[in-house]
Amino acid sequence: MSQLLMLAISYLVGCISGSYILGKLFYKKDIRNYGSGNAGTTNAMRVFGKKFGIITFLIDFIKGAVLILILKFIFKLDNTKLLLASLFCILGHDFPFNMNFKGGKGVATTLGTFAIFNFLPTLISVVFWIVFTLIFNTASISSIAFFILLFLINLYFKTFSDIQVILLIIVVSIGIFRHNSNIYRLITGKENKIGARKR
């Protein structure tokens, strides 16, 4: 598989949006027109309910996990190419061409790709993510912490080349950047708790 084809496929897989597909299929609604306007798990949960949010998370997680699973164990790609594939899958989720580049924030998709790429650091990051969620009951705080810890714990457990560290930084930076509106609301005290539904 050529690198260009691999990146194109990774991006297109990322463009599969769980919340958008389910919203159109079951509610005849575009999730981006409701709540925060984000096509991700948290907004899906707030707008359409917890069950809808869980299914959204699973779709976005599985697409990333299956992509890296195939590339890692069938095509035997090295870590640099796997990180590139993860990055482009996340870019597809966050900026899908078929949704006018207005997608989600990439937490579930990042989790899915990294769960296969490097399982133990990802698992530890998820544990901290859950702890932060239970403590603060705010999705944005726990998600931002997840991205930061994912980077730090990966570096602790594994030796990366310079290009791989740069790719890790880009993945984490995109994840945090996608939460910029949440960061503003956290600073101003206007951020919503998990489960606070918007219509």
Results as ranks from 00 to 15, higher is better:
T159K: 13
I170E: 10
K28P: 00
L12A: 15
E191M: 00
L152Q: 08
L123K: 12
P121G: 11
R197P: 05
Y34D: 08
L77M: 15
I74G: 02
K81R: 04
L5K: 10
I116L: 15
N137C: 07
I163S: 12
I59A: 11
L12S: 13
N98W: 10
V171D: 13
F73H: 10
K76M: 12
I90T: 14
L5V: 05
L91K: 01
I59Q: 12
I194E: 01
F132V: 15
L69R: 04
S2Q: 02
L123G: 05
F48M: 00
S17L: 04
F114Q: 08
S140R: 04
P121T: 11
S181W: 00
S142F: 01
I153Y: 14
N79W: 11
F146I: 07
R46F: 03
L67Y: 03
L25A: 08
S161C: 09
N182F: 01
G37P: 00
V13P: 12
L111H: 07
G106D: 06
F114D: 10
T56N: 14
G175C: 00
Y20M: 09
T133K: 07
R178T: 07
I31Y: 01
I74C: 12
L120R: 14
D30S: 06
M6F: 03
G23P: 07
L91F: 14
T80S: 15
Y34I: 05
K198A: 08
K50I: 10
M99D: 02
Y27H: 06
T159V: 13
L58W: 03
L87T: 13
F75T: 10
I144M: 09
L82N: 12
A115H: 00
F48T: 01
S86N: 07
F101Y: 14
G64R: 05
F52R: 03
I54C: 10
Q164V: 05
K102N: 10
Q164C: 02
N33H: 11
N79P: 09
K50P: 05
I31D: 01
F117T: 09
L7A: 09
S36K: 08
N118I: 12
I16L: 15
L149K: 10
K198I: 08
I170Q: 06
F48P: 07
L58V: 15
F177Q: 09
T133I: 13
I170H: 07
G92K: 05
G14H: 07
G92M: 04
T113D: 01
I31Q: 03
I187K: 04
L5Q: 12
D78A: 13
T159H: 09
